[in-house]
Design a protein around this nucleic acid. Structure first.
Lengths: 197, 197
DNA sequence: CCATCGTGAGACGTTGATGTCTCACATGGT
DNA sequence: ACCATGTGAGACATCAACGTCTCACGATGG
């Protein structure tokens, strides 16, 4: 009986802690467990009760990032309509998770080897599939590989997230900046072709 | 007398250590001083004689990155010819330093506040000035701010550097991938271009 | 009213990296 | 041969973060 109540409360707290940790670690990737705890408004002991250690916390954040990514991928309905519009929807859906993704993106670069969560590969595949679809539909240029476009999307998301938190670009322009730069580059430019070289 | 010889030798060694450290830290940003020393083929003691501590080492790497950036900026002659060609030259010149820049780029995101080296602002300004020049010449679109384009360039450089080291894209395509994506997005779209030519 | 449980505070011991030190050794110049 | 100097190896103390533990408090449910 009480089990239900407690597990419910813990689930709520767990999510709150996760959110605060994401917000803090996004700004200061080297934040200590003590700082994470204080940022979440709890003690270090409680933090340790919910996440066995820093690794567990980071892996939980990774799981959160993956689930948010997949939610965004679903919401964007990548298979519908023009690929460019699908990409625009994707970036728009990804925006709230951008800061967290930026943290996880660099966190993965921090260590060598150390096989990464399989979830990322599936996400990579879905994003790459979108670009491939755009290429096969004659919508995107074919000299930029889907793999590179995927990587570039991550990079631009991270750059934009940082630029926003440091006030170098306005938060409102977030989606526009990324989409326009990415698609403008990925979109085949038919009219310009005749002029190039 | 002997001072000359020793200082000369130390200068050579210092540069070599710096290069190896850059190569290692690029792959594993959390590498220990011991690993850095071994990677450079020297003992930890000697490493410590040349760089007072980890901070000093990172700051030396920062100085190296800044100087390489400025060398690339000079070599690219950003004020000559079309801005798009200048940007292409810039990326090409920046390529050898890309991995180091990727390391320093994330290193700066790792800490909050902590005023960054003034050298970066000057570099930012020069790059942003290039994009601004392209906009004023009617070559680049004006809805993407020079500041964002600068930030995006850094992000793409880092993404490409990582993608290359992890074998996701071919090293030979490095410049092409970045330039085509960046410029394709930055270049103003066709209709206006027709009138001009 | 009492029992239970989560929590905060804090005291540990442990680990890993760091910075400092000494000393023996090899090299190179005198 | 002699001396000086840079180097490698390793010992040593220090420090910060971690993980574990205990204990008292407050709240909640029976």
């Amino acid at each position: 009986m009480s089990h239900m109540v407690y597990s419910c409360l813990m689930a709520v707290d767990r999510d709150h802690v996760l959110r605060s940790a994401a917000a803090l670690l996004t700004r200061k990737a080297t934040a200590t467990m003590d700082e994470v705890a204080k940022a979440a408004g709890i003690s270090r002991a409680t933090l340790h009760r919910q996440f066995a250690g820093r690794d567990a916390l980071v892996r939980a954040l990774e799981a959160l990032g993956i689930s948010e990514c997949e939610a965004a991928l679903d919401a964007a309905a990548l298979d519908d309509g023009p690929a460019s519009e699908a990409a625009r929807r994707l970036v728009h859906e990804l925006q709230p998770a951008a800061a967290l993704l930026a943290f996880l993106y660099t966190e993965n670069q921090l260590f060598e080897g150390e096989e990464q969560n399989a979830g990322w590969s599936r996400i990579d595949d879905r994003v790459a599939a979108l670009f491939r679809r755009g290429q096969e539909a004659g919508e995107f240029r074919i000299d930029l590989t889907p793999g590179w476009l995927t990587e570039a999307l991550y990079g631009l998301l991270a750059s934009a997230a940082w630029a926003v938190t440091e006030g170098r670009v306005a938060r409102n322009d977030f989606t526009h900046m990324i989409v326009e730069l990415l698609l403008g580059g990925a979109l085949r430019r038919d009219e310009t072709r005749r002029e190039e070289s």
